[in-house]
């Protein structure tokens, strides 16, 4: 892998949860993303995916750990100033096609917002750029004059992508951009993101809860459970030979459009509350292979093959 443009080291996020209590939403998360590559991040709801993505672009401060973007450390002392120097090279695409656009702003102004914030763009250039961006995401130029509510969910997602592309970023966090869409829209948006990546050499952190969608988007995949990465590998390795029992269980229960497939029985239990994390492996109480030490000792994420890491005592 070439030098990473984005890297996270030991990221931790604690949220206050009532008097004298904190909720550890993200615990010791590390990964690298190289230019033009995608890291897929999967996990069930509440596993800390969005929190991780938000810390990466500085939307929320990390409690501890380090984020480097394009060689600049943007966490810690003086981080904000360094973040400002790379700000135009990063963007974010949101999940909710309704909430991610200001209902009172025309599409033109929504898409041009990053340009307006940066300043120094002439009126004519701005209009030309908006037209160009709309074309890139497959929307007619006349959309510029309309308001978000006049568009379907899939089209709004395209508008959000156009806005993200406005300043020619090199890295985009996509937080479940297709989760709220129907299958046919989902496929269109996935292809659009892949086309844009090829055209502009974009790097993505692609967050989703659907393992199949992540496979179609990513070069590397990380699986999160209860705030931590439990397995991270290239997509070939992860889907062909998943090592962590949780990854295996997830792959076993994804419904597939094949009436002859006999699905394995569901995993029992639920994700533990982040407020009272059990000792040891967070997955132990649901894990079919758990042993005594799993309930005592927290497994570290360690190398099990080149570029393949898992956090399980048994692998």
């Amino acid at each position: 892998m070439s030098a990473p443009i984005v890297s996270a080291r030991g990221l931790v996020k604690d949220f206050p949860a009532g008097p004298d209590r904190t909720l550890r939403a993200v615990d010791n998360v590390s990964f690298d993303i190289a230019a033009g590559e995608t890291l897929g991040l999967v996990g069930e709801s509440g596993s800390g995916k969005s929190t991780t993505g938000r810390m990466l672009v500085g939307l929320i401060p990390a409690t501890s750990g380090e984020v480097s973007l394009f060689g600049q450390t943007v966490t810690g002392r003086g981080g904000d100033a360094r973040l400002a120097t790379v700000r135009n090279r990063l963007q974010f695409v949101f999940q909710d096609p309704n909430g991610s656009l200001n209902p009172r702003m025309r599409v033109r102004d929504a898409i041009a917002e990053p340009l307006d914030i940066k300043g120094d763009v002439a009126r004519a250039d701005r209009a030309a750029r908006v037209a160009e961006l709309l074309d890139m995401v497959g929307l007619p130029a006349a959309s510029a004059d309309r308001y978000p509510h006049e568009f379907s969910g899939g089209q709004r997602q395209r508008i959000g992508i156009a806005r993200a592309l406005a300043l020619r970023p090199e890295f985009i966090v996509c937080d479940e951009p297709v989760s709220a869409l129907d299958v046919s829209m989902q496929a269109q948006i996935v292809n659009l993101l892949l086309d844009l990546q090829e055209r502009f050499g974009l790097g993505y952190l692609f967050i989703a809860h659907d393992l199949a969608v992540v496979r179609s988007m990513s070069r590397n995949v990380a699986v999160m459970y209860a705030g931590s990465i439990v397995e991270i590998a290239s997509r070939q390795a992860l889907y062909a030979a998943p090592q962590h029992p949780y990854t295996q269980a997830l792959l076993d229960v994804v419904p597939r459009p094949d009436p002859d497939r006999v699905r394995k029985p569901a995993l029992a239990g639920e994700v533990p509350s982040m407020l009272n994390r059990p000792a040891g492996c967070a997955f132990a109480m649901r894990c079919p292979r758990a042993e005594a030490r799993c309930r005592v000792e927290t497994p570290a994420l360690r190398d099990i093959a080149a570029g393949h890491r898992a956090a399980c005592h048994l692998v």
Partner: peptide
């Protein structure tokens, strides 16, 4: 709402967020 986060990711100042996003809504 997420559109405010979108503006913040692009480096919008508080004044801009107030003027363009909070006030109109």
């Amino acid at each position: 709402l997420e559109f405010v986060d979108a503006a913040r990711v692009s480096g919008a100042s508080s004044l801009r967020i107030i003027w363009k996003h909070l006030l109109p809504n």
